[in-house]
Structure formats: structure tokens, C-alpha cells
């Protein structure tokens, strides 16, 4: 089984974000990055499927040179090789543009299973994998909790709302978007890190993939970015830890009357 897993590099979860002077996006200097959380679970799912059924895992990431660290991390955890989609034409794409680039690259590569996380922790579009599936003409399922292989293809467990789940059967090749927490993430071992140095990372750009400018054209326009408006007036309690504790208990008792 040949599995391609898409990994997005996003600012670290606890990053302090500052809006740039133009008010168009965040300041990206000084940021540190990591693998998007649900994508990391997609990678782990791919590695576990390979361990069980054999085959190959390819880690794919789109972005500037810095995203190579995400691919290298995946190679160190056990992916066999990497694909890096790098082109200034890929800067600031919306989900349709990213889906277009991923579809073109994965079609050229060929695969049985294409995995993405269910959404990114930065833009949160939650649709890149689904768009790629549509452009590739392949079936998909979103918010997947478990993947089984059988003779007919795939049987995947889909998370629904209100505590419901549903198994869905599909032929392969297919595209799945993976829910966070469905497995236990592994860390890269020293041996894995050493082995990763010898693994191939193939770079591809828009021209090589035959992607035309029209398909990358933005389908949405960001008008402005800002701090969210508050719905509630928050009382901030300050002081030493002891002061804060005493003040909070007093307020909860006498003001909010929860005790």
C-alpha cells in the first residue's frame, strides 16, 4: 500500500501572535513552527498502516524552504521519502489553490491512500483534503477515527456529532481526513534521525506539475485581520498567587454566588 500523507507546517500552538503593520496578516519573523496537530495523527496512521500491511509512506508538504523541517521530522519518524511543493506561486494560497497543488503532485506520484489532518490550526479551512479528492475524482471521508483495509478497499470510522459514529466502506484509492487523537504519536528515535538523512526529498514547482495560474487564483479575499471582539467583560485578578486565590474564592462566594 502506497500512502501519501500531507503535513502542514503551522506556528507553534502556544505562539504569541502579532498582527503586521499593514493589518493584513501576522508578523512571521520570530515565529517557531511545528507539524499541524491533526496532520501528525495522519502521519502516525500512515506509519501504522504500513507496519501492518507493508508498502510505502511519502510525506508531502507545501510551503517555503522552512517546511523541509516538517518533512525531515516525518522521515525521522519512519516515512520513506518526501515531496516538497515549493514555488513562490504557492505563497498565500487559499484551500482551493493548495488542494490544486496537492492534487497535481499526488496524481503524478500515484497512491492508494492520501491522508490529511481534518483541519489546520492556522487558517482552519478544513477542506484541503476534500478539495484534492474532488479534483482527483476520488472518494473521500472526513473526520476519520479508524482505518481498516479489506479486499474491496477501505472501511473507515467516521466521527459524527453527539457521540455518534459510522463505518463507511469505500474503494481505494481514496482520500481521508484524520481526526486528532486517534492513535498515539511516536517520537523520532536517534536511529530514525540518522536514517532520515539518507532519504530523498523531491522538490516540485508549479511549472513541473503543469498547474496554470487560473487554478491558483484566490477564491476569497482577506479584508482585514484583528483581535476578536469580546463578548464578556472579564474581571482580571492580579497579585501574588496567595492574593489571587483569596480574591477569587471571595468573588466566587460573594459576587458570583457559586458556593
Amino acid at each position: 500500500m502506497k500512502i501519501i500523507v500531507c503535513l502542514k507546517q503551522v506556528p507553534k500552538n502556544d505562539s504569541v501572535l502579532r498582527i503586521n503593520e499593514q493589518g493584513t496578516w501576522i508578523q512571521d519573523r520570530d515565529l517557531t513552527y511545528e507539524i499541524n496537530e491533526s496532520d501528525a495523527y495522519g502521519l502516525e496512521a500512515a506509519l501504522q498502516l504500513k507496519e501492518k500491511h507493508g508498502g510505502e509512506v511519502i510525506a508531502l508538504s507545501l510551503g517555503p524552504a522552512r517546511v523541509q523541517s516538517v518533512i525531515k521530522e516525518a522521515l525521522a519518524r519512519g516515512a520513506d521519502r518526501g515531496i516538497h511543493l515549493e514555488d513562490t506561486a504557492f505563497d498565500n494560497l487559499d484551500a482551493y489553490g493548495i488542494g490544486t497543488a496537492i492534487a497535481a503532485a499526488t496524481k503524478a506520484e500515484g497512491f492508494d491512500l492520501l491522508l490529511t489532518g481534518l483541519q489546520s490550526d492556522d487558517y482552519g479551512f478544513a477542506q484541503t483534503g476534500v478539495i484534492a479528492a474532488e479534483l482527483l475524482g476520488l472518494p473521500h471521508t472526513t473526520i476519520v477515527m479508524d482505518v481498516e483495509l479489506n479486499d474491496a478497499g477501505l472501511r473507515v470510522k467516521r466521527e459524527l456529532e453527539n457521540g455518534f459514529f459510522q463505518w463507511v466502506n469505500m474503494p481505494a484509492p481514496a482520500v481521508l481526513t484524520i481526526q486528532s487523537g486517534i492513535n498515539t504519536l511516536r517520537y523520532a528515535t536517534l536511529k530514525g534521525i540518522m536514517a532520515a538523512k539518507k532519504k530523498e526529498i523531491k522538490k516540485l514547482d508549479a511549472a513541473t506539475l503543469g498547474i496554470d495560474a487560473a487554478s491558483l487564483a484566490p477564491r476569497m479575499e482577506f479584508r482585514r485581520i484583528y483581535l476578536p471582539q469580546k463578548n464578556k467583560q472579564t474581571q482580571f485578578i492580579e497579585g501574588s498567587a496567595g492574593d489571587i486565590a483569596a480574591k477569587l474564592i471571595d468573588k466566587l462566594k460573594n459576587e458570583a454566588r457559586v458556593f
Binding site: 501576522i26 492556522d122 476569497m220 479575499e221 479584508r223 482585514r224 485581520i225 484583528y226 476578536p228 471582539q229
Partner: peptide, 20 residues
């Protein structure tokens, strides 16, 4: 209509307009 959505898991908000 221009739509407001959250980015960076709710740390920031953006206004977006459809194009086309």
C-alpha cells in the same frame, strides 16, 4: 455580505469576502 471567521484557533479573526 462579508464574513467573519476565526483563524489560529480563535486567537484572531478575519473578515473575508468571496471572489468571483
Amino acid at each position: 455580505p462579508v464574513f467573519t471567521r476565526q483563524v489560529f484557533q480563535g486567537k484572531l479573526a478575519v473578515d473575508v469576502a468571496p471572489v468571483g
